[in-house]
Each structure stands twice: as C-alpha cells, then as structure tokens.
C-alpha cells in the first residue's frame, strides 16, 4: 500500500516560491494563472495493513515530522 502526503504552506502564509513561479508564468504569457502554491509530495511505501490503521499512522508521521503545522497544511491519499 502507498500513502501520498501532499504538503503546502497554509492559506494566508505567503509562499515565496509560488510567487516566483507565478511571476515566471506571467512573463511567459500564461496570463490565465490566478495563484500558484508550491508544495511537496512525499510518497511512502508501506507494509499492507488495513487502510484505517495506515491512515492513522501516516497522520501521526505528518504531524511529528513530515509537515510543520505552524506554517503548513497536509493531506493524505492512500493508494492500494
């Protein structure tokens, strides 16, 4: 089973990298872009347990290490 953790800066926390990418897209003429947020994706390959158990464990991993909840939000996707 795989767990995919997506991590982004929270709404309201200025994302300097997103801003720079937005600026670059603008200068390339992609003027339909309203906002850009740059995040990271962490893919975990896990020993198959039941989905609920893995979800709980990955949430714990995210809170303690993978994300810094002072500035970041995360979501977890489980792929079987």
């Amino acid at each position: 089973m795989k767990a995919i953790v997506n991590i982004y800066l929270k709404e309201g926390v200025l994302d300097p990298q997103g801003k720079a990418v937005h600026h670059a897209l603008d200068s390339l003429g992609f003027d339909s872009v309203k906002d850009v947020r740059v995040g990271k994706q962490i893919v975990l390959d896990l020993d198959a347990k039941n989905k609920e158990e893995i979800e709980k464990e990955v949430k714990q991993m995210s809170e303690t290490l993978l994300a810094n909840t002072v500035i970041e939000d995360y979501d977890i996707e489980i792929v079987e």
Binding site: P16, K19, N68
Partner: peptide, 10 residues
C-alpha cells in the same frame, strides 16, 4: 514560537 520559511526573494 513561529517557524522560518524560505527568504521572500529566494
């Protein structure tokens, strides 16, 4: 308290 992010000018 708080956290340190990437410099705003990168």
């Amino acid at each position: 308290p708080g956290a340190l992010k990437r410099n705003d000018n990168l």
